[in-house]
Amino acid sequence: MARVVVDVMLKPEILDPQGQAVQRALPRLGFDGISDVRQGKRFELEVEGPVDDAALARIREMAETFLANTVIEDFAVKVES
C-alpha cells in the first residue's frame, strides 16, 4: 500500500479570511515573526496496487474534478513512501 497526498490551497489571489484570522491571533499567543498564513486542505489517499503513471493520472483527474475546485483552488499531488 502506498500513500498519495493531495494538498489543496486557495489560489494566491483569493482572499483567505480564515488564514488571516489565524495570523492575527499569533502575536497574542506569543508567536512572533509570521507575516502571513494561508489555510488549506490535505487529503491522504491509501492506494491499492502500484502507484504507476496511470494511477497518478487518475488521482490528478480526481483532484482536478472533485477534491479541488480549480476556480478557486490549486492542488499538488505527492507520492509518500
Partner: peptide
C-alpha cells in the same frame, strides 16, 4: 450550480467569518 459549472464562479467563506 457553481460546482456543476452550470453557473460560473464559486462561493467562499464570508470575508467577515
Amino acid at each position: 450550480l457553481t460546482e456543476t459549472h452550470l453557473l460560473p464562479g464559486a462561493m467562499l467563506r464570508n470575508d467577515n467569518l
